[in-house]
Nucleic acid binder design. Structure first.
Lengths: 232, 232
DNA sequence: GCGAATTAGTAACAAGACGTCACTAATGTC
DNA sequence: GACATTAGTGACGTCTTGTTACTAATTCGC
């Protein structure tokens, strides 16, 4: 809080430099990975989040979609704001204010733009300080919302096994879930429906395929709540 | 989503006009009220949220604190970002981008600045469209966070009765809670401790006063979760 | 004074959610 | 055919939650 005599002044806009910084997340090889781009030589960090200023008249999410396409070569499945950042932490383009946006995209082999690469969230290279803060907030936001909104389904093809789905939840939440509890909670949530198809993945019993089909839920429904750890 | 060939461009900041728009909320006479300021004549709406551009180098929350002081005459008890808004909806200062921030302040008779007034959230006058959207998001954000962070205690004096506290939760959540469940959940949360003092409010049995005293909670604690409706 | 009204606080119960274990089922591998 | 591997489920004990119904301490009306 800053000390300042409380007297009214006419508010007025001032010119500011604004950036949209995007945390593109995708499941890659059993971890959650973020898409980083190589920075121009000269900065201390070699990598940063993809970012740009919004075009005149362009919405923030639209800008984030454009920026994601520019680095990923594909449209993200879901965009969500994670906050505005105006602290003094260094931004690669020296923007006064950054709007952080998290984008989710399914795993795909689609060609990345030259200079873009996936990094496991657990092993990110050094980032400009503001970008580091945005990544941290993005993972927090994702973990908070995964129970409330069908984020996980955006990362899967239209038909998937319950083990696939559980794997996505575990990536997004960052912890293991118990199989029986997961399925029971999923039942109660009325979010999926079984199909007639089964998939055999080599070894083990074939798994039934499900599709995302949220049904009307009576009363005020609570989200899917999963708790525990360690499946045997 | 906008259609645009995905080829890489050097990102660059551009000048934008930025506003910080503040939703100051306070309990007033059994409802949640927002603080509005009279707008300069000429605009279609007579009222708007207090707002201003951040000063050079000023953090967003710092700006929100300053703006709140300018309209309320006091420092808010808590500030929380609710999002960035860059759609085409009209802003009273024609800012390209607004950062919405919600401020909570206890009920107080403190003198408002001339031109500022409290309005029950249930009966707001017409607002500039972007401000209307910010108010709606602010109430959503407050309801989502009231379980996770001690918002409610910021709206009460250091000592309060459990009925006072329940009333604040009901205002913030916008629904009635069941007395026994509320108290049991509060017990489990280890957020308050009883004092030796009691308060008699006229009729009825005197109530014990409590103070906010979050104790270390073993393991990963879940927030206070209240569910039900209708107290008899 | 004394009962009715009013607000505070709690015990206890029933129903449900949750964590866990142990099992059955269907496939591939050796 | 034995075994490893993954899928899927039934059942049980415990903890959580919604609800009812009660006790407690005060003011108000008469």
């Amino acid at each position: 809080m800053r000390e300042r005599p409380p007297h009214s002044m006419k508010p007025a806009v001032r010119k500011t430099t604004l950036a949209v910084d995007v945390v593109v997340l995708s499941p890659q090889a059993d971890t959650l990975a973020a898409l980083l781009v190589r920075t121009a030589p000269g900065g201390r960090e070699r990598w940063s989040l993809p970012w740009d200023a919004p075009l005149p008249g362009e919405g923030l999410e639209d800008a984030a979609a454009r920026i994601t396409e520019g680095a990923l070569g594909a449209t993200p499945a879901l965009l969500e704001q994670v906050g505005a950042f105006a602290d003094v932490r260094r931004h690669p383009g020296d923007a006064d204010v950054s709007v952080g946006i998290v984008a989710l995209t399914p795993h795909a082999e689609s060609a990345l733009v030259a200079g873009a690469e996936w990094f496991s969230l657990a092993a990110l290279p050094p980032l400009p300080p503001r970008h580091r803060a945005i990544v941290d907030r993005a993972t927090t936001v994702v973990r908070q919302r995964v129970d409330q909104s069908p984020l996980a389904f955006r990362l899967l093809p239209p038909m998937f096994t319950l083990s696939d789905l559980q794997g996505i939840y575990e990536l997004l939440l960052g912890r293991r879930l118990h199989k029986a509890s997961f399925r029971r909670a999923l039942q109660a949530s009325y979010l999926v429906e079984p199909t007639d198809e089964w998939r055999s993945e080599g070894r083990g019993r074939p798994a039934q395929l499900f599709r995302y089909a949220p049904r009307k839920r009576r009363g005020a429904r609570r989200g899917v709540r999963f708790d525990l750890f360690t499946d045997g």
